[in-house]
Nucleic acid binder design. Structure first.
Length: 212
DNA sequence: ACGGGGATCGGCT
DNA sequence: GCCGATCCCCGTA
């Protein structure tokens, strides 16, 4: 199986964030796979990062951020949900936010859940992709290394092509630590959010497993 | 294409 | 009460 294991998630957060680009996020619902390729992420570091939910220590809302790496941290904001992956040693309070996916499997269901908008609107944005994959707070604290509902994997189908370039920018929508370059995305991919803002040129996309 | 404003609700002060 | 790691809709061009 190509599922990412705990050793992967245990690494330094920025390193996990960069390596998550190009991996496949899979949601399994009654034997059906709904999945997308990770094309945009943000790193949220441990308590010294003022923009991180872990900054003020464990609370009922954010306690799974302090769980062992490889667990899912799902929080609600503006009446929507966003999905994070816990990294580093247990208790660190560090995580990677998934901000955008390129739709891969189960696109019918995605379209349905996203009101049949254009593909570009299905999974471009952290709360949009949670809607498309039916992720809510009931998945908070799930272990991505052992769950049968959601996990990340390497897909052999997307690891053999032209290398991509990772671009870095400040994180979106935060007011503290707004200057830190902790957002990473696949340059030129159509499904990255905030396209215009970052002066990206629309381009065809190709994937390869990222090395180092 | 781009920007501004309102919706919406759980968690915290 | 207030505020957000957001999104959608409706202006303008």
């Amino acid at each position: 199986m190509n599922r990412l294991n705990q050793t992967f998630y245990e690494q330094a957060t920025v390193s996990v964030a960069r390596q998550l680009l190009g991996k496949l996020l899979v949601r399994a619902e009654g034997g059906i796979r709904i999945s997308g390729i990770v094309v945009e992420v943000e790193a949220y570091l441990s308590s010294d990062d003022a923009a991180s939910h872990s900054h003020r220590g464990p609370k009922p809302r954010n306690q799974t951020m302090f769980a062992r790496s490889g667990h899912l941290y799902v929080y609600s904001i503006h009446a929507k949900y966003c999905l994070n992956i816990v990294t580093e040693a247990a208790g660190s309070g560090a995580a990677v936010l998934i901000r955008a996916l390129e739709p891969w499997e189960g696109t019918r269901i995605m379209a349905q859940r996203r009101s049949n908008g254009s593909p570009r609107q299905w999974t471009t944005g952290p709360a949009r992709l949670c809607q498309a994959l039916d992720v809510d707070r009931s998945l908070d604290g799930v272990d991505l290394c052992s769950s049968d509902q959601i996990w990340l994997e390497r897909s052999p189908r997307i690891t053999t092509q032209i290398p991509w370039k990772i671009t870095t920018s400040p994180r979106i929508g935060i007011s503290s630590a707004a200057d830190l370059p902790l957002r990473f995305f696949i340059d030129g991919n159509r499904f990255v959010s905030g396209l215009a803002r970052l002066h990206q040129q629309p381009r065809t996309w190709a994937f390869q497993d990222h090395v180092s």
